[in-house]
Simulated assay, not measured.
Amino acid sequence: MTKRFFRTSAVVAVASAIAMFAAPSTYAAYPANEEGRAVVQLAQVGHDDDSHATEAHPTEAIGKRKAAPAPTRLAGWDTPTARSYYLTSSCRNWASTIRQGAAAWNRLTEGGGTPVECRNGYITDCGGGTRVVGCNWGRGQRIALYMGGVTDGALLAAHEFGHDWYGHSTYRCAGWSSPAHVMAPSICN
């Protein structure tokens, strides 16, 4: 009886771990564009619907796992529209990391547009959980980042810039493999 209990518990624990960290197959097949590059279709945040104009998109940091480092050359994924941003003085120490994250998206340029501010602690005015490390209000009205709360600040920046066009994907933890992976709702440290 005891052996069966432990064996069943071990199987359940392994299955739970696999399910928790496995990426969903929802984004497995991507159609290619005329250049042969994969085209990922994420749910766009309602550009035709003003109900999302002031909605905040909180991103929470979870876990203690070290994130994979950012690729040396980011993909520059296509976006539906061109956007721009500028860094406030609070982001002076993180400027190169934030620019690296912005490079994940084509047609996102620095100079005007969305103000990006950096905070010294978790973001409390965005909604969501207690460990909110990033927030994009109203599809790029403003962005706040807590770079000290994550191991990969470029990924956090890429995620928050991505909210200019996209909502969260069904991945559990953000990563660099695709736009859908970047748009996971959590940064798993």
Rank of each mutant, 00 (worst) to 15 (best):
G111I: 05
N120R: 10
A61D: 01
Y166E: 06
G162D: 07
T79I: 05
N189V: 15
G129P: 07
R142K: 12
A144C: 00
G46Y: 05
H47V: 10
R65D: 11
A68M: 01
A22W: 13
E35W: 05
T2F: 13
N120L: 08
V150A: 04
M183N: 02
G134A: 08
W176Y: 06
A43R: 13
C91E: 09
W77F: 10
S186E: 14
G175F: 00
S9T: 13
K64E: 14
S25I: 08
T124Y: 10
W137S: 11
Y122L: 05
D164I: 12
L145Y: 04
A68V: 08
W77K: 01
E55F: 07
A22G: 04
A103C: 00
Y86N: 06
T109M: 03
Y122F: 15
G101Y: 03
M20I: 14
A102D: 04
D164V: 10
V14M: 11
H168V: 03
P58Y: 09
G149H: 02
C118M: 02
S25L: 11
P80N: 08
G76T: 03
N106K: 14
A23G: 13
A61W: 01
T8M: 12
Y166W: 15
R7N: 10
M1G: 12
M147W: 00
N136E: 08
R37V: 01
N33L: 02
M20W: 14
Y146G: 01
G113L: 06
A180I: 00
R73Y: 00
W176I: 02
A102T: 05
S186W: 11
Y30C: 09
D48C: 02
A180G: 15
T97G: 04
S51L: 08
N33Y: 01
H47W: 14
A13N: 05
G76I: 00
D78L: 05
L87W: 08
S96H: 04
D125C: 03
M147V: 15
A19Q: 06
P115E: 03
A23F: 01
T54E: 15
G121E: 13
T54R: 14
V40Q: 15
T79H: 02
T114R: 03
G148S: 08
Y86M: 10
S96Q: 12
S9E: 08
A174K: 01
T79F: 05
L156A: 08
G112N: 12
G153F: 05
A174I: 04
N120C: 01
H159K: 09
A23L: 12
D50V: 12
H57Y: 15
Q44L: 13
Q41S: 09
A61Q: 15
Y30R: 10
D125N: 15
T59I: 13
W176V: 03
V45Q: 06
S96C: 01
A70D: 04
K3E: 13
I187S: 08
F6L: 15
S96W: 02
